[in-house]
Design a protein around this nucleic acid. Structure first.
Length: 880
RNA sequence: GGAGGAUUAGCUCAGUUGGGAGAGCACCUGCCUUACAAGCAGGGGGGCGCAGGUUCAAGUCCUGCAUCCUCCA
């Protein structure tokens, strides 16, 4: 027995509604995956947020969509698992912890690896609990009993397994190549961790003298400091200007090293002088040329971006300082030809923002071609991953088809240590899940793996893989959907697909829902430096999680960015408040009504039949659109149904039987109110979980929680198209009277007389049946309904389908104004008639358009002609 | 250079198999009607970026152009 007293305050207070609710859900274990073999499994893994900090609006958006899908599926009776977890986020977290250490006046080297990792774990624990409390405030229905972390033992086993297997297959190798080096965080970066930005730079032209000659060759560069590492000059083999110089020797200025002029068709003859300096240790293309010509590789920089011993007198200088000094020195010896202004692309570290240095270094790589080929082939099969919106599949495929090998080693401490050992004496490499038996003779690689290497395994490593017999892996993998932003398609989505295909033989998820970025009101990216970020927790404090969620879900279309506007969240709060008050009304009028009392078999009014029909359509639309991830469309359907139909019409009409003495009618109305509100709360629950649970609990209900209540079904027996027609006539009459009242300044509070002339007796009886509604909503003194009646002289008129309305408002009618109004009305109907006639006289339309459409146009024609005639007749009467 | 997105009311955006242009906010008018004045009722406001094409029919499909924004090289 629940307390029947209405306890809702008149204003919706989200903080009160949301308080304690999540705890109730957790205690009920509603979010724990039941692993029930009778149900069909449905699973999603959360994109693990970084433990670097708190969640931002982007996370809130991403997870709200997942929660909406998950809550609907749970209500639909699936065996639902939403697996939460977090990512160790190597570079980012390490940078944060190092920042802490710096504040304390120390650094990681002073602390040592072990102590540093301890600190990092402390950081992780702290932020993990922040994140969990944020998930709670957002109302996310994740299964905490299965929460994972990328550095967990199980996930670490998966990482080792994958590394070893790929190594054994020859798909992981170690080698010395040019990689992207971040001198600030002192680690290698993969290609996609480098952001290319246009920079106003300088293009320096130098003279390189030819040995034993007065001649010189002109070369140009944007990075003069790298000349210290030049080991050749290259020209195009077909370049006539330089034919005589190929094979000659150049004296490298400032250094004095003798380097050769080589011919290589990589060189672009059009660019600059057509001769380029070759620095194999500091440029990927030069590295390739160096290989072809067997050139020496001279590394001139240290890992921190300062010049090394190979830089001679420049040793110790910062690379940019060195650049200026070199230019000065070359100018002094007369080797500087000119300096051009030039806009060019400069790579920056995605994390630190530092200018990335192409740098010769020994690293571990994943050979991508075979893995990418399999991933591309998957998309050509029937078993492909479905992208929503589809266009992102092309983005994904284009990247896969043009992929280069992936640098996976990172010179960090926080992460998965590379499972490779080097023999102290022989230098032999051992790769394995465990250290070699005689481990005292070996040293493990100091480096860790790219964070994305472990994230790529997330959909299956979290389920127990590599144990392919693990219960969750067998039941919940592959997952059904993945929800993430377009900014990490390459970083994460793509890598999950090829790793999953390689190691489980299956795609990791059936659908990928790609969303955009959250921006500020001006459309700028939210960032710390701009200070324009909005904390989702502030939004929740002000307007509630339900408002925030609804705003995020309905604010844009799939794949599109979303601008944050406080006013929009506020208007969502208005919606919640509307739901709140409609529920208050229903609860106040249910009296001692119980759930079992709901009975829709009684004598249903037109309003009852209409709202039940509209409910059916809403159930259908909301279900279909949510299944297609069209949350905006689904949300709008609910908004319109609740506000414009249930509140503005049904509740108002329900007041008649509710306040009447007819017990049977009253009971039926209570049934419809309770039923429709119950069903609506269920439909809305995935969007606004808190308020719907609160209202559902207050309503007559069966069951413990709305989170596990069944999803509404369309009920054909409650569908009534005739009632919809009847209702629309009734609404048209009421609206036109309201309209006339406004035109003649007659407020609703003033009673008026009203006459309705119906087209036939059938309509007369229909209107008689609904007389009480007309009397109430038009506030009539006298209401006459007949098929033929004495038309009053001075009256305002309106036409609706099948009927004409007369309001004899003596003393209020300004004949001229009324004539003007009717003229406008006539013009409107005449236009409509013309439009339809034109369409119907088009032979192509009549013969080629669908028959149903043609028929509906013919019907409109009849309707408009009738309305036109009535208005015309009325005009003539008034004039006459 | 290549790919994609955007361009619809004053602002922010919907418009999903092509079949009479919509919402929220803002604006104007009138109402404290016993669920809600953060509400109710009524109203104004749009050459759907431009130019072609396909079609009986185009905001929607095709081509080109313009402007803005992303991504890739």
């Amino acid at each position: 027995m629940s307390d029947k007293k209405v306890t809702l305050p008149s204003k919706y207070n989200p903080n009160e509604v949301e308080a304690g609710r999540y705890q109730f859900w957790l205690e009920g274990k509603f979010f724990e995956a039941p692993n029930d073999p009778k149900k069909e499994p449905y699973s999603i893994v959360i994109p693990p947020p970084n433990v670097t900090g708190r969640l931002h609006l982007g996370h809130a958006w991403d997870t709200t969509m997942q929660d909406t899908i998950i809550r609907m599926k749970r209500m639909q009776g699936y065996d639902v698992l939403w697996l939460p977890g977090m990512d160790h986020a190597g570079i980012a977290t390490q940078a944060k912890v190092e920042g802490e250490l710096k504040k304390m006046g120390t650094n990681r080297y002073e602390l040592g690896r072990e102590k540093f990792l301890e600190k990092s774990w402390e950081w992780k624990e702290e932020y993990a609990s922040f994140i969990r409390s944020q998930w709670e405030k957002l109302g996310l229905s994740v299964d905490y009993s299965r929460e994972r972390f990328t550095l967990d033992e199980g996930l670490s086993d998966a990482v080792k397994e994958v590394f070893v297997k790929l190594y054994e297959k020859g798909l992981i190798y170690r080698g010395e190549y040019i990689i992207n080096w971040d001198p600030q965080t002192k680690t290698a970066l993969s290609d996609i961790e480098v952001i290319h930005e246009e920079v106003e730079g300088k293009f320096y032209h130098f003279k390189y003298p030819i040995k034993d000659s007065d001649e010189f060759i002109e070369i140009a560069t944007t990075r003069p400091e790298t000349m210290l590492g030049d080991t050749a000059v290259a020209v195009h083999p077909d370049d006539e200007r330089y034919q005589h110089l190929i094979g000659k020797t150049v004296i490298l200025p400032l250094v004095g090293r003798e380097i050769e002029i080589v011919a290589d068709d990589y060189v672009d003859m059009e660019l600059g002088s057509g001769a380029v300096k070759i620095t194999p240790a500091h440029d990927p293309n030069d590295f390739e040329i160096g290989n072809r010509h067997n050139l020496e590789r001279v590394l001139v920089m240290n890992e921190d971006g300062t010049m090394n011993e190979n830089a001679g007198k420049y040793e110790g200088m910062d690379r940019f300082e060195c650049r200026e000094q070199i230019v000065k020195d070359l100018e002094e010896i007369g080797a500087l030809l000119k300096i051009e202004e030039r806009v060019h692309q400069v790579g920056h570290s995605e994390r630190s923002g530092a200018v990335v240095e192409p740098y010769l270094s020994t690293q571990w790589f994943v050979k991508m071609k075979p893995l990418a080929d399999a991933a591309v082939a998957l998309q050509e099969s029937d078993d492909k991953v479905n992208f929503f919106p589809e266009r992102f599949e092309r983005t994904y495929l284009h990247w896969m088809e043009n992929i280069r090998d992936w640098v996976i080693s990172r010179q960090l401490w926080w992460g998965h240590r590379i499972p490779a050992w080097y023999h102290k004496e022989t230098g032999e490499i051992y790769v394995g899940r465990e250290a070699p038996r005689d481990h005292e003779n070996w040293e493990q690689d100091e480096d860790v793996l790219d964070t994305w290497f472990s994230s790529a395994l997330w959909p299956f490593s979290t389920m127990g893989w590599p144990d392919t017999e693990a219960a969750d892996f067998k039941r919940y993998f592959p997952t059904k959907a993945l929800v993430t932003g377009y900014d990490i398609i390459f970083f994460w989505v793509a890598r999950m697909i090829f790793q999953s295909k390689e190691f489980t033989g299956e795609k990791p998820f059936e659908d990928v829902l790609i969303h955009g970025l959250i921006r500020d009101a001006e459309g700028r990216k939210m960032s710390k430096s701009l200070g324009n970020g909005v904390d989702p927790m502030d939004v929740i404090d002000k307007y509630g999680a339900d408002s925030l969620r609804y705003f995020l879900l309905t604010g844009s279309t799939p794949g599109q960015d979303l601008r944050f506007h406080w006013e929009k969240v506020e208007s969502t709060w208005n919606f919640a408040n509307k739901i709140w008050n409609a529920s208050r009304f229903v609860l106040m009028n249910l009296e001692d009504f119980n759930y079992d009392d709901i009975d829709l078999s009684g004598d249903l009014s037109v309003a009852d039949k209409w709202i039940l029909t509209r409910l059916n359509e809403t159930i259908d639309q909301v279900t279909k659109n949510t299944d297609k991830y069209e949350f905006g469309e689904a949300g709008r359907q609910l908004y319109n149904f609740i506000w414009d139909e249930f509140c503005d019409w049904y509740i108002e009409m329900a007041k008649l039987p509710l306040y009447s003495d007819d017990a049977a009618k009253k009971k039926t109305t209570q049934s419809v109110l309770a039923y429709v509100l119950d069903q609506t709360m269920r439909l809305l629950h995935p969007f606004m979980p808190f308020i719907t649970e609160e209202i559902w609990q207050q309503l007559p209900h069966a069951g413990e929680s709305i989170t596990i209540a069944s999803w509404p079904q369309v009920k054909q027996e409650l569908h009534d198209e005739l009632a919809v027609k009847e209702m629309s006539r009734l609404m048209a009459i009421i609206k036109s009277v309201r309209n006339i009242r406004a035109e003649v300044d007659t407020p609703m509070s003033k009673k008026i007389n009203m006459l309705i002339e119906a087209e036939n007796e059938q309509i007369v009886s229909e209107l008689e049946r609904n007389r009480a509604y007309v009397e109430r909503f038009c506030n009539t003194e006298k209401l006459e309904i007949a098929a033929k009646l004495q038309v009053p002289d001075k009256a305002m008129t309106a036409v609706v389908t099948g009927a004409e309305i007369f309001l004899p408002l003596e003393g209020l009618i300004d004949i001229d104004k009324e004539l003007e109004r009717l003229e406008k009305e006539l013009e409107k109907w005449t236009q409509e008639v013309d439009r339809v006639k034109k369409k119907l006289s088009n032979e192509g339309f009549v013969s080629k358009a669908p028959e149903a459409l043609v028929e509906s146009e013919r019907q409109k024609e009849r309707d408009y002609l009738e309305k036109q005639a009535k208005v015309k007749a009325r005009l003539e009467e008034l004039k006459g």
